[in-house]
Amino acid sequence: MKTITKIFATSFAALALFTTTNLKAQTTETMTTTSTMMDSGMGFKVGVGINGGLFRDKSPMDYSYGADLKLQWDLTKDVAVTASGGYTKLMSRNNTVDPDFIAAKGGVKVFAIKRMYLATEAGAGFGIQDGAKTNFIYSGGFGYEWNNGLDIGVRYEGYVNDSASTTYFRQTGQYALRIGYNFKL
């Protein structure tokens, strides 16, 4: 019995020693991983921005303006997933149809060179006027995000409209500039 008791006590002491050492290593690793995540820029950001755009000469639209709210989840220091919503007003060349809509888009940002990014988004523009149908919106562009939160981007944004809409215009697109500010959460 004494031998079994000694083996049991030694095993228990060894298990306790390995467990506490292992827990300490896991705690240190977790803290290192967390600080690495913070240093790499991982986390959530909320951005507010204003934008304006110009259309090509052959487009029935002349210019646009709007504002948006953008959520950004940094998966790594190089890749982020985005979701945005906002108001956009399109102004026609001949003042016949001036559609405005609430846009809801999702996308991806890839930080190719430090703070410079390439971005793509797709989503829907929900018409505000009576009889207006939903537009399909797609965009692609690039920009720069400063450490202080300032975000400036340029994009091409295309619109595909439903022909049954009271605010119908043929498929067109704009070259837009967005100036925003990101708040880290």
Rank of each mutant, 00 (worst) to 15 (best):
K2H: 12
T3F: 05
I4F: 01
T5Y: 13
T5L: 13
T5D: 15
T10L: 14
A13V: 12
L15K: 02
L15D: 00
L17K: 11
L17D: 04
L17A: 09
L17F: 10
F18N: 15
T19C: 11
T19R: 05
N22F: 11
N22K: 10
K24W: 06
K24E: 07
Q26G: 07
T28Q: 08
T30F: 06
T30S: 12
M31Q: 11
M31S: 11
T33G: 07
S35H: 14
T36H: 04
M38E: 11
G41S: 10
M42I: 07
F44D: 12
F44R: 08
V46P: 12
V48C: 15
V48R: 14
N51K: 10
N51G: 12
N51H: 12
N51W: 07
N51Q: 11
G52I: 01
G53P: 02
L54D: 06
L54A: 08
D57K: 05
D57M: 04
D62A: 10
D62M: 06
Y63L: 03
S64P: 02
S64H: 05
A67T: 15
A67S: 15
L71A: 09
W73F: 12
K77T: 06
K77C: 04
K77Q: 08
V79A: 15
V81N: 03
A83M: 09
A83P: 07
S92L: 07
T96S: 14
D98S: 10
P99K: 10
D100S: 15
A103Y: 08
A104K: 10
K105N: 14
G106W: 00
K109H: 02
V110N: 08
A112D: 11
K114Q: 13
E121S: 14
G123V: 13
G123D: 03
G125A: 07
F126Y: 01
G127T: 00
G127R: 01
I128N: 01
G131P: 12
K133G: 00
T134Q: 04
N135R: 09
I137M: 13
G140Q: 00
G141I: 02
F142K: 01
G143K: 03
G149W: 04
G149N: 03
L150K: 01
L150W: 01
L150H: 00
E157G: 02
G158A: 15
Y159L: 02
V160C: 11
T166G: 12
T172N: 14
T172W: 09
Y175G: 01
R178D: 02
G180N: 05
G180H: 07
G180Y: 06
Y181I: 14
N182E: 01
L185G: 09
